[in-house]
Nucleic acid binder design. Structure first.
Lengths: 240, 240
DNA sequence: ATAATAGTGTCTTTTAGACAATATCAC
DNA sequence: GTGATATTGTCTAAAAGACACTATTAT
């Protein structure tokens, strides 16, 4: 195809570019996703993923982090944020051609979301419920893709620690896996597997009491982020 | 942030949106990537990934497939095409803010690439060489990301068949793995693993002679696209 | 026959998964 | 003590990887 003139870049700026974010957190052992109630057309009153348009001169990652802060009051650095993929089907937004770059964010249990600067309400919804709702735009698809990405990355990375506080127990970590994958894991094999991967977890030497039972060792995330060999996920088991 | 008026979407259209494609193929057992020599500024004369701007009303996938056809004469359906991710750092294009949605395409050995409709030259470059070149824009990073995606997906999918013709031998398939991963595999264990995964390969019953040696059975890609358990890649071995 | 490639069988080591047993707490 | 959670140990089945061996061709 023909390249544009140097000063005619705007000739190719037909699309508005937005970011939408799938933010997962764990609340009382259940995986939740942050959803907002839309305050304007289209899809007024419908639930949607938080997001918004990329500002002039703003990078994609910066836009995602800015929106995340506006909706959750999240301090940068506390959450894991990564790009999911771009969604650009021509009909996905009734207003016109809007390209959305979706992000996946994983955060430890957060304070209540602060509603965005406009009138929309933001709240945590159990993922199991959210999957059954009709979300605005193609956000149902984005949510499913984000969930699948999170599930897959738990298999071969230490990403589960992104759901935990700075220090955590092996049980905390296992609770993350069980919530994201949707089925229980054997505590003993899980413990051996995770602590047996060199560099993955750093023992702080301290322990934490959780009500009844033997106190659990407290760990910090180590320098190794890749699980090799990976944890295997029971493909046929997961329930939303 | 504030949402736009219904009729003010163009207020948020600051970015030009392009697609760039990492096209891999196998030529004489070596992995090659399609590169073009840029005919215009910026980066005149430098090598870059094929790509171009998304046209008005055009979907991302459609734009990628169109560019692919323009550069290679590839018939849709013969290649595997999937989105890689979006690249949107503000400084990545000196002309202004250009968002690029990168695609990964895998194709069987193709005829010589047809140069694009403008004056640029297109040619296949061994990936080992391409990784050492300074490509235009952030295309070096995109190439590395595309290569890593291809390498990773060979582990747990039947994607290697995308490099093969309709009918292929187990050796053909192994040659794909060896070219993409960059190190040799044991022919016997590979054979047992691949033919032992039910539904992955369909035996046509026919054979093919390759010079000397026993004729190899010809297979077709089966309905199963997921390798479970996956093939394991020797992480510390791969050389570009 | 010899060389070359295709394919099968077998053995060892590693890992996954089931689950017994022990450790340390609250009560 | 009982009950709960954490952690270690042991066993079995499955898989990975090494490699001997057989099968079928060209020369």
């Amino acid at each position: 195809m023909v390249e544009p003139e140097l000063d005619a870049l705007s000739r190719y700026s037909h699309l508005a570019v937005a970011v939408d974010i799938v933010v997962f957190t764990l609340i009382e052992g259940q995986l939740h996703v942050l959803l907002v109630t839309r305050g304007i057309e289209p899809f007024v009153g419908k639930l949607a993923l938080p997001g918004g348009f990329v500002l002039a001169g703003e990078g994609l990652d910066a836009a995602a982090i800015r929106e995340l802060q506006e909706e959750t009051g999240l301090v940068p650095g506390i959450a894991h944020v990564e790009q999911l993929r771009a969604y650009g089907a021509p009909g996905r937004d009734p207003r016109g051609h809007v390209l959305s770059v979706a992000y996946l964010a994983l955060a430890p249990e957060l304070p209540h979301p602060t509603a965005g600067s406009d009138a929309r309400e933001a709240r945590w919804v159990p993922v199991a419920d959210a999957l059954g709702l009709a979300l605005a735009f193609d956000h149902g698809q984005i949510l499913r893709d984000g969930l699948e990405r999170a599930r897959a990355k738990l298999e071969y990375t230490s990403l589960a620690t992104a759901f935990c506080a700075d220090e955590f127990t092996v049980s905390d970590l296992r609770a993350v896996y069980e919530a994201v994958w949707g089925y229980p894991l054997d505590p003993r094999n899980f413990h051996r597997k995770l602590t047996g991967t060199p560099g993955l977890l750093v023992d702080t030497g301290r322990t934490r009491r959780n009500g009844q039972g033997r106190p659990a060792s407290l760990f910090r995330a180590g320098t190794i982020a890749v699980l090799n060999p990976p944890l295997t996920r029971d493909e046929g088991f997961a329930r939303p």
